[in-house]
Design a protein around this nucleic acid. Structure first.
Lengths: 205, 205
DNA sequence: TCAGATCTTGCCCGTAGTGCAAGTTTTCCC
DNA sequence: GGGAAAACTTGCACTACGGGCAAGATCTGA
């Protein structure tokens, strides 16, 4: 827990956070496409040019929080027991994330997020953020797999896992009746056992 | 198979196709970010403004082919046997798509696609295109599910299925040793049975 | 304290996306 | 076949975005 960062680094973090929060607030207030980069920069007391030094687009600024949480997820996966099978490691890390990063999210956060739901440019960036770490995640779980086609199968695992996580969080934002953890478990169970849950496929013709 | 379309419609289709092909060709030749919308429009003999009437961005023009195939996939899913379980319907449709839409793709197509691999703006758009139909797909398979949490679970199914399909196609483009169908089956099997495939099926504690 | 590294800002340019209105092509119906 | 209506194309103008560049401000390390 060493927080011995220099002043410069702390200022940068503060600016990044200010831009992120300004972007989130303005986007939920007026709708993202009625908010200019300049307005976000103004709200964070920096120039338009400086905004570009931190984020490459409005969308990236809005989803900065998600990006942080996704990096945290990677960290959690790496810290799973060395002998845990791939899917167990992934779902274990996800459940941990659901508690530590979303467990005590203020209701206002949910309201904010629900405002942003459905905006085309935003969902595009959101899924892009998820798939951005797909390769890293696949690399991290590859060693937990046995059998042939490791590269392909670890990639499928990472992709389906991230898709499940994304859907679970989205569902929770839309229907916040109950903790995310319950929804996440349902989603991960469905993903892990698509076969038994839907009926026996048996080679499916 | 009625092709009784009017002249206007045929012209529009031709223009759309010309723009798509020009975008694909120029992007593979020079790299997408060194190609302007104006250049694509010129290559298709229309104005820059007309380009915007057909596609909202370069990326959309490049991925027009994928969008068409994804719509076709929806169609194939709807035509699956009414009593087929959800996952069977999805994988059945995917296997059909692999044959009919990718089965006789010329090698040059694979080369083109490999050129585009890894471009950040492109993968973002690609995954966005996939998730764009996620909701429709979920609605189409919801009635094939039994049990509680149908909305969530059908969404998870659609999302994980599309993720698997995307990964399979990507893997095939990167390693075209063998038909897509084989890779697809491996991917879908891994997705459907993530748990048993990865090692110990029983809680693995 | 001070030199070097790093960050911020304004300026500028090329590109993107879009409303609008005028001109062109296709359709539809008599 | 003719002519009005609908649909499409195009150029223009304007806003916004992203990023290179250089000058000034701020932080760091010795």
């Amino acid at each position: 827990m060493e927080e011995t960062t220099g002043l410069r680094e702390r200022k940068k973090a503060a600016t990044r956070l200010a831009l992120h929060e300004a972007a989130l607030r303005l986007a939920t207030e007026h709708g993202l496409d009625r908010v200019t980069v300049e307005a976000i920069a103004d709200a964070a007391n920096v120039s338009r040019r400086t905004f570009s030094n931190y984020f490459s687009s409005k969308e990236e600024a809005v989803f900065h929080g998600d990006a942080v949480r996704l990096r945290r997820l990677l960290e959690l996966v790496r810290r799973q027991p060395a002998d845990a099978p791939a899917w167990d490691a992934l779902s274990g890390a996800a459940e941990r994330l659901a508690v530590e990063a979303y467990g005590n999210a203020p209701p206002s956060w949910l309201v904010h997020r629900r405002q942003l739901r459905g905006h085309p440019g935003l969902v595009a960036h959101q899924v892009a953020a998820y798939t951005a770490i797909e390769r890293d995640l696949a690399d991290d779980v590859a060693h937990r797999l046995t059998g042939p086609d490791g590269a392909l199968r670890s990639r499928v695992l990472a992709a389906t896992f991230l898709a499940s996580l994304r859907v679970a969080i989205q569902h929770w934002i839309d229907h916040p009746d109950g903790p995310l953890l319950d929804i996440l478990r349902t989603a991960l169970t469905e993903a892990a056992g698509a076969r038994p849950g839907t009926g026996a496929p048996a080679t499916a013709g």
